[in-house]
C-alpha cells in the first residue's frame, strides 16, 4: 500500500512522541549502568554522569568480595519465588476451574466470597497483628511465601481463560465417568499451557519484586530477600561497611560505595532484563484478557 502524506506525518509524529517517551523510560537504566562503572573518585568529583570519564570494574570487584549476604538474599528470593509461584498457580487454577463448572450451582456465591475481599478489607493493622501475634509469622519465611500467593484478580483472569475451553470437552469426560480432579489434571491443565505461563509469570514477577513483606515481618538479616537487601544497601551506608567488615575488607575512602549501589541495582534487576524479551508477550496476553473482561 502506498504511503499517503497524512499517514507519513502521523507516523512521524508517532515516532517522535513515542520515541521520546521510550527514551525517558530507558534513560534511568542507562544511568544505573554507567554509574556502576564509575570510580568513587569521579563520582565525588563530578557526580553520576551519562558517560563516565573512566570506566572501572571496582564496584563489581567489591560486589564479588562482599557477595555472601547478597548471594543468600538471591537464594531466598529464588526459593520463595519458586515455591510460591508453583503452589499459587496450582491453587489459582484449581479454584478457577471449579468456578467455571456450570453444574456447580453455588459457584457464584463462592466467587462473591473471593470478590468481596477486593471491595472491603480490614486494613493493614489488623492484618499485621493477625500475621505476627496469631500466626507467629515474625521472622518466618512463610511470611514471604504466603501473602503474595493468591490474588482474586488472577483467579478471575484464569477463569476467563478456562471459560474459553469448550464445555463439551468437560461434558464428554463426565459422561465417560471421569471425576473432577481427573478432568482437571488430564484434560484442562494440558489445554491451559499458555494461560499457566501467563498467570505464573505474573505471580513470579510479584514475588521477585516483593520487599514489603520482608520490611513488615523480617528482622533477621539471614532471611532478607533480594529486593530488601538492595533497599538496605541503598538506604544505609553502614550496610556496605558491615558487609565489607564481614568479608575482611578494610573500609577506605576510595571504596566505590556509590558505584556499588548502582552495580547492586543492576544485578538485582538483571534476570528480569534478560528474560523480558522472551516473556513480554505473555504479560501482554494477560492484560488483554483482563481488558476484554473489563
Amino acid at each position: 500500500m502506498r504511503l499517503h502524506a497524512d499517514r507519513f506525518w502521523f507516523n512521524t509524529l508517532g515516532y517522535i512522541l513515542v520515541g521520546l517517551f521510550a527514551l525517558v523510560c530507558l534513560l534511568p537504566f542507562w544511568l544505573v549502568i554507567t554509574g556502576s562503572f564509575m570510580t568513587q573518585e569521579s563520582i565525588t568529583l563530578h557526580g553520576y554522569t551519562f558517560w563516565p570519564s573512566e570506566w572501572s570494574l571496582g564496584a563489581y570487584k567489591l560486589l564479588g568480595e562482599t557477595s555472601a549476604g547478597f548471594i543468600r538474599a538471591y537464594g531466598i528470593t529464588i526459593v520463595v519465588t519458586a515455591i510460591g509461584t508453583t503452589v499459587g498457580l496450582l491453587v489459582t487454577t484449581m479454584t478457577a476451574y471449579v468456578l467455571n463448572c456450570k453444574d456447580f450451582r453455588q459457584r457464584n456465591y463462592v466467587a462473591f466470597y473471593f470478590y468481596f475481599t477486593t471491595l472491603f478489607s480490614g486494613g493493614l493493622v489488623p492484618w499485621y497483628i493477625m500475621m505476627v501475634k496469631y500466626l507467629h509469622m515474625k521472622n518466618s519465611i512463610l511470611a514471604l511465601i504466603l501473602p503474595p500467593m493468591l490474588s482474586v484478580f488472577y483467579i478471575l483472569i484464569m477463569r476467563s481463560f478456562i471459560a474459553a475451553i469448550p464445555e463439551a470437552i468437560r461434558e464428554s469426560a463426565t459422561v465417560d465417568g471421569a471425576g473432577d480432579f481427573t478432568i482437571f489434571t488430564r484434560l484442562i491443565l494440558p489445554l491451559l499451557k499458555p494461560a499457566l505461563a501467563t498467570i505464573g509469570l505474573f505471580i513470579a514477577l510479584h514475588y521477585w519484586n516483593d520487599w514489603f513483606n520482608t520490611m513488615m515481618f523480617i528482622d533477621n538479616e539471614k532471611i532478607y530477600n533480594l529486593q530488601y537487601y538492595l533497599y538496605q544497601v541503598l538506604s544505609k551506608m553502614e550496610f556496605l561497611n558491615q558487609a565489607a567488615a564481614q568479608a575482611g575488607i578494610a573500609t577506605t575512602a576510595n571504596m566505590p560505595s556509590d558505584a556499588y549501589k548502582m552495580a547492586m541495582t543492576l544485578v538485582t534487576t538483571g534476570p528480569i532484563l534478560l528474560l523480558y524479551p522472551f516473556v513480554q508477550r505473555y504479560f501482554v496476553q494477560g492484560i488483554t484478557v483482563g481488558a476484554v473482561k473489563g
Partner: peptide
C-alpha cells in the same frame, strides 16, 4: 517489570 526499590535507586 521493575521493583519500586530499583526505582528508588534511580
Amino acid at each position: 517489570f521493575i521493583s519500586w526499590v530499583v526505582v528508588s535507586a534511580f
